[in-house]
């Protein structure tokens, strides 16, 4: 173990993702990468930088701006022996390729009586905070969690991102890997071991232990929740922060166990407020853990509007540390 520790580095979130991909591509020749601008730029934010030189043109495929065409090509390649990683730049573009994800990738195994496997990984950026406005700031992971047949990974740290992406590339179901662009340069969380490791899907992670209130978050909201927990501590409230990490599968037991311990729940979800992960978690606890609750469930989400451009408006739109603190205090004081 000592040796492993010496090799741990403070990688950024994006570096950890690049490393996981690179290591898995070295290990498994059936992995190919395809998307817009992946060869020369290495993808718009450089996720695949150097891949062309390392893995060659036949494994790093630049596509035209044809999301339905290249996501669908990923589905067909996955059904016939490859393990494609498709870059769907921003999740806001999913509508263009929606049929291939929702009607094809997600359903083929089931429709064909289990006789197909679709080991397809779609990486896509999510989230606000960069004034990227209405068509480049959404989260939308709730849409995919709604559809049976697609696994959904929503990591918050470099360590989790590397381990979860490694798992995504070693299993046989379609995976949407949501990469919050606000976290790209983040080095928060555990240091990242150099060698590859896999984190099991469906295992939430307690990022901070506490006793008074459970705050469930995912992606960027985990960091906001951790900041809120620090603030709450100065006010005498001990908050537990639970990071879902994957929403399909979702670790229901970890949520219920934590609420059982604290008696109070706040769910923080950057997606739109209707039919999102927060309402899903709230429904879970209301139906299976109602007796654990000492106060009504608090929900902090983005507002029910498209993401606005102006930083002032966007701040009002997004979940924030302050909103989480308020919600947690309300949960504790309403007891």
């Amino acid at each position: 173990m000592q040796q492993v520790d010496q090799q741990q580095r403070n990688l950024t979130f994006l570096q950890a993702i690049t490393e996981a991909l690179s290591q898995e591509m070295e290990r498994d020749k059936s992995i190919v990468v395809m998307g817009e601008d992946v060869r020369i730029w290495g993808g718009v934010f450089g996720r695949f930088k150097g891949f062309r030189e390392k893995f060659g043109d036949d494994r790093v495929l630049d596509t035209p701006i044809s999301e339905a065409g290249f996501v669908g090509a990923g589905v067909g390649a996955a059904a016939t022996g490859l393990r494609p990683v498709v870059d769907l730049m921003f999740v806001d573009f999913f509508g263009v390729a929606g049929d291939q994800i929702v009607n094809q990738a997600a359903k083929m195994k089931y429709m064909f009586g289990g006789k197909a496997k679709i080991p397809l990984v779609i990486i896509t950026m999510i989230g606000g905070g960069l004034s990227a406005a209405a068509q480049h700031s959404e989260c939308l992971y709730s849409v995919f969690a709604h559809i049976p047949g697609i696994k959904c990974v929503v990591p918050s740290t470099a360590y989790d991102a590397k381990g979860l992406l490694t798992t995504a590339l070693r299993q046989d179901d379609p995976v949407m890997f949501f990469e919050h662009k606000f976290l790209h340069s983040s080095t928060e969380g555990r240091p990242v071991p150099k060698e590859s490791y896999a984190i099991q899907f469906g295992k939430a992670d307690i990022k901070r232990e506490g006793t008074d209130v459970t705050i469930v978050g995912l992606a960027r909201t985990v960091h906001q929740s951790l900041e809120a927990a620090q603030e709450l501590q100065t006010q005498g409230i001990s908050a537990e922060v639970l990071d879902l990490r994957t929403i399909v599968p979702m670790d229901e037991q970890a949520i219920l166990d934590s609420v059982k311990k604290t008696g109070r729940l706040v769910v923080v979800d950057e997606d739109y407020p209707r039919c999102n992960i927060a309402t899903d978690v709230a429904a879970l606890v209301a139906s299976k853990g109602f007796n654990y609750l000492d106060s009504p469930i608090g929900i902090v989400s983005s507002l029910d509007t498209p993401p606005p451009f102006s930083p002032v408006l966007e701040e009002a739109f997004l979940p924030s540390v302050e909103k989480i603190v308020q919600s947690a205090k309300a949960a504790v004081h309403r007891t």
């Binding site: 290249f70 090509a73 589905v75 067909g76 390649a77 059904a79």
Partner: peptide, 28 residues
Amino acid sequence: ADVGLGMLGANGIVGAGAPIAVGAGLSS
């Protein structure tokens, strides 16, 4: 469908098989 015989499925969405065929061609 019968994937074992290379029959990658009838499809309820008109035109949806085309990108999938491209993927199968890419794979080959």
